[in-house]
Design a protein around this nucleic acid. Structure first.
Length: 564
DNA sequence: CGCGCAATAT
DNA sequence: GATATTGCGC
């Protein structure tokens, strides 16, 4: 009970004041982490080698609350040594190595968690959880001096009763401040607020406990080989890593008082509490939910963003869905599955299986989605494909030929089926460019998710979205990898919108067409090759028949008008 | 009631 | 300025 008012005071800004031992062989990454941690008010001590670090620990036990240790590629024994020696210090291992066995070993040796590098703010921010966890899972008698205050203050703030500890609540926090019990206020306005059980990717307050069903992505995050999700920022890991309160704490607000926990994000108060609804049908996190065209089927909900819900007020505001990559990916998958024709909010919603999402949310997103499709794609389409190739070359932009806009209403023209996993200009933006969405996403979130990145390298990314060179007409080599073959080395590689410098006669390239056709058949829900122009339907059909394919999948057929 | 679109809010 | 939400007609 070395807990003084002062201590409490110190903890009121929670993560603030936590002492972090940082052990990283890479001074640069160490500096980065340190910087981030300090921004969150952690107190960081950096070490370059385990010996120093261990010395520091042994020298002054209780100097640190938590450690972050890098597992180097070669010299991992140092890390393990640390791990084994500093048993008493919650240690988070981190590495660039995605080797499962390494991860396993770390965990086996006592690491509380394994995080892939780079460590995003979100990952770092949550490290305090381990501290609290430990604080509550260590017998009082063994509780280190540094942890006592943690426990004390948390207990105090939450007004908990210690089972074996001392029920001495230093400061009786005003109940108004920390309401453990979330009033089931689902009545609120109208019924349009669905009981969002555990908000989807919505801003997820720091619901530490919650459903015990947390996927242990932590360890599994060691990817296989899908070279896609390198930067995945999953914060779930820590979030559900452990719950502070085993039996002691009731589920409830995060242990952190409402003060300004983190400076950078203060206004994110939107902790909507809703009792989890036992939606029978939905179980998020089911591995292979959708089609997933060969992509990394990883889906973890919960987005980064640091909403340590300022516990205090139970502002069940309007939960604002923010469409994260994952969310959007799901969305797109759903749309793809359904096919435009049937891609209606409700269905999409179902397919997405995201708790807390409302039909409205989806509808809205869909609206935007469509909008982008109609504007971006066609544009791209044009520029890359100056329509009447010979004639309109002069201005490929302004011309907004007939088919430029697939019009909504004529849902019967083939063009309605557009959507491919990228809204944005496929060719116009290098993979990493973020178009809409994720404005607020930290840079550390790589180019991952969002679809505008190259979807499938194997298949011409442009195939659907952009006619590019896959069709008879335009020979313009796009700078995309797939076309590289056609490139004239010296030729101007005017990205995308190149005027036909030298339209070397590239013929329909049978194989390409074939590819397209096959794809079209196998994925009827995908937009047809716009390259085939307005009459594209027919063109396609023609091609199909030429290819000896006589039967057309219902989708295409159905959605396409006059069978005469 | 649900969808799509426009207006409005943040 | 962009994105999400709300409102409204169909």
């Amino acid at each position: 009970m070395v807990c003084t008012t002062n201590d409490l005071q110190e903890w009121k800004d929670f993560p603030k004041g936590l002492r972090v031992l940082l052990l990283d062989g890479d001074s640069i990454s160490a500096a980065e982490m340190r910087s981030k941690l300090e921004a969150m008010d952690y107190i960081v001590s950096t070490f370059c080698n385990e010996n120093e670090a261990l010395t520091a620990i042994l020298d002054k036990p209780g100097s640190f609350h938590v450690a972050i240790v890098e597992v180097g590629p070669n010299d991992s024994h140092g890390s393990f040594k640390f791990l084994e020696t500093a048993k008493d210090l919650p240690t988070i291992m981190t590495s660039n190595i995605h080797c499962l066995s390494t991860v396993m070993k770390c965990i086996a040796l006592g690491a509380v968690e394994f995080l892939r590098k780079p460590l995003s703010e979100d990952k770092l921010r949550n490290i305090w959880q381990h501290v609290v966890h430990k604080a509550f899972n260590t017998k009082s008698s063994f509780l280190s001096e540094s942890l006592k205050p943690v426990k004390e203050s948390v207990v105090s703030m939450l007004q908990l009763q210690l089972e074996n500890g001392e029920p001495d609540n230093k400061i009786s926090v005003e109940t108004e401040n920390v309401s453990l019990v979330h009033e089931n206020d689902q009545h609120s306005v109208g019924s349009d607020k669905y009981p969002a059980p555990s908000t989807p990717q919505l801003k997820q307050g720091a619901r530490l406990l919650d459903d015990g069903d947390c996927q242990d992505q932590t360890n599994c995050s060691t990817e296989k080989e899908s070279g896609e999700q390198d930067g995945e920022s999953k914060s779930v890991e820590t979030t559900c890593g452990e719950s502070i309160a085993e039996g002691t704490l009731q589920e409830g607000e995060p242990p952190i008082p409402g003060k300004n926990l983190i400076k950078e994000e203060e206004e994110s108060a939107d902790g909507f509490k809703n009792e989890r609804k036992a939606s029978p049908h939905q179980h998020n996190r089911d591995g292979r939910s959708n089609i997933d065209g060969g992509g990394g089927g990883l889906e973890n909900l919960s987005k980064p963003s640091v909403n340590n819900s300022s516990g205090a007020r139970a502002n069940r505001k309007k939960m604002k869905v923010d469409w994260t990559s994952e969310l959007h990916k799901k969305f797109v998958h759903a749309v793809e599955q359904l096919g435009v024709d049937q891609a209606i909010p409700s269905r999409i919603l179902e397919l997405m299986k995201v708790d807390g999402l409302t039909r409205h949310n989806v509808a809205s997103h869909l609206q935007k989605y469509r909008m982008h499709k109609r504007h971006i794609l066609p544009k791209e389409d044009e520029r890359r494909w100056p329509h009447t190739r010979d004639v309109m070359q002069r201005s490929y932009y302004p011309q907004r030929p007939i088919m430029a806009f697939p019009s909504y209403h004529s849902n019967h023209t083939i063009s309605t089926a557009p959507i491919y996993p990228m809204w944005g200009s496929p060719g116009g933006h290098p993979a990493g460019v973020q178009m809409w969405g994720s404005p607020g996403y930290p840079a550390w979130q790589p180019t991952d998710n969002w679809h505008w990145k190259q979807p499938y390298l194997g298949m011409p990314a442009d195939t659907w979205g952009c006619p590019v060179m896959t069709t008879p007409h335009n020979p313009y080599p796009s700078f995309h990898q797939n076309t590289s073959g056609f490139h004239h080395a010296g030729a101007v590689h005017n990205n995308s919108c190149g005027i036909s410098q030298n339209s070397f006669e590239i013929h329909p390239a049978e194989e390409v067409i074939d590819k397209v056709v096959k794809e079209a058949i196998s994925s009827p829900w995908l937009p047809l090759p716009l390259g085939l122009k307005p009459p594209s339907t027919e063109s396609v059909l023609t091609e199909l028949s030429r290819q000896g394919i006589s039967r057309i999948p219902p989708h295409i057929d159905g959605s396409n008008h006059h069978p005469h």
